[in-house]
Each structure stands twice: as C-alpha cells, then as structure tokens.
Amino acid sequence: MQFLYSGITSGSIYALVAIGFNIIYNTTGLINFAQGEFVVLGGMLMYTTLTMFGLNIFSAFLITFILMFLVGILFERVFLRYVRLKTEINLITVTIALAIILRGIAMMIWGRDSLAVPSYVEEKTVLLVGGSITSQSLVVIVVCFFTAIVLSTFFKYTKYGKAFRACHDDQVASTICGIDVNLIRMLSFAIASFLGALAGAIVAPITFVTYTDGVMSGLKGFSAAILGGLGSFWGGLFGGFLLGVIEGFFAFILPSGFKDAFAFIILLLILFVKPSGLFGKKKAVRV
C-alpha cells in the first residue's frame, strides 16, 4: 500500500502540471513545453521569499503566485504574440526555446545546487492502512484536490470560465459573441503558469528544487495529460494520479533507477493503444 500513498503524492504534482498543459492546449491548441519550468520557478521563488528574504509563508505564496501569473502573461504577450508566422509548430518551438532560456536564467540566479525549502507544516507521519503518509504529502494532495475543484467550478459556472470553453469550441464564434479571444489566450497562459508554480511550491519541501527539475516534471506532466486524454480536465487529474501510482508501484518491484522510464513507457503504450487517452473524446464534428 505504501507505493499507493507516495504515488498519489507525486501524482498530485503530475496532475497539476497536466491540467496546466490542458488549459493552454484547449484555448490555443499548443503544447507548452515550458510548463515544467513554471514548476521550477514556483519552487525557486518560494525558496527566495522564504529563506532569502525571510518572509512568512502567506506572503511568500502570495508573491510567488503574483509573479508567476505575470510570467505567464509576459510569456504569451511578448514571446508568442510577436511570432510572425503563427503556425502551431512555430509557436511550440518557441515554448521549447523559452523553456531552455528559463532554465538558463534559473541556473544563473539560483545556481546549480538543490535548494531546500522549509516545510510549511509541522512534520508528522500519519499511519494509514498498510503504510504511512507524511503531513507534507497530505498538504500536496489536499491542495491538488482543492485546486481541481475550484478550477472545475470556475470553468463550469462562471462567465469567464464559459468564455474559456467557448474559445475551445470555436474561436470565431467566440469573437462574434464579443469574447476577446486574445485576452483568453493570455489568461490561459497565466493560469497555467500559476498552476505550475503552485505545484512547484507545494512539492519543494519534499523534493527540494534544482534548476533542471523542469525537464522531468514537464515531460511527466505531459505524459499524464496524454494518458488522461489531451484537453480533458478530469482526464489530466486522473492521468496524473494514475501515472504517479503506476510509477510508485514499479519503483517498488523494480530497481528505482527505472522509475523515470515508466512514465515514458506508459506514454508510448497509450500512443500505441489509445491515442485519444483514457478520457479523451473526439472533438464533436460540426454538421
């Protein structure tokens, strides 16, 4: 059972990253390969505000999230907006370039060492059936579920949430209805950046944060998104958990060196067997 608990913890992180991928994919049709770098920046900023400036937890979170929200906006407004030929392949390449740039900047600012972010809650171990879970992990899981519920409520019931879904369905019709599609695109990057930072911030006390972490969290979040079905909100969430648990299980029975490989074996299997993902649905065909 222990692998299940640790799997759900790392799965929560994959889920948050996967939801970030899906939000951007739904409104722009792009895969944002800098999603993993948002996770790293989230962790790094928490380290900076908490350890270097000695702020309290609340203001540290607030500053990190506001900054990352702005990073997302800048990302879209400055770098993607001014690409001359806006084909999807060009824009995706830009996100890869930005991922590399962000990684370089992170290395220059925070160095090559792993940074330890202090724990947000008192460290305790909770005993559960067949295993145990740390209070840190519980925070991660609770935050992930809470975020998922808040986001799904936002998309389902609020005016701007509906505008996001409308842009996903049909951008021309959205423009006709008076929705500023460019604003929605920008906001989707801001929300994705925020989600990445949230994932990075809550996991930093457990895993520490190194400037190269973004590659793995990005690719695993992407695998989770594909596993659940690209573009599906609940698919991303479930895909994240499933990936985390499967990974934990195989790390349990096989040498842990193979752990990272499993995310990608699952990615390949899904692409071979069911490319639309577990919860993916084909876009409704217009008559």
Binding site: A163, R165, A166, H168, D169, D170, I179, K283, A284, R286
Partner: peptide, 21 residues
C-alpha cells in the same frame, strides 16, 4: 455566421448565455 458555429460541447442554454457575453 456561415455554418451556424454554435458551441458544440456546451449546452443550448450556455450557448444563449454567451450570446449576451
């Protein structure tokens, strides 16, 4: 618009709401 362009994955009611965005 040409081809109607309703929002296919949203309900009829939501489509109408968006008309008054």
């Amino acid at each position: 618009p040409e081809g109607r362009r309703v929002f296919p994955n949203m309900t009829v009611f939501e489509n109408l709401e968006l008309g008054g965005f």
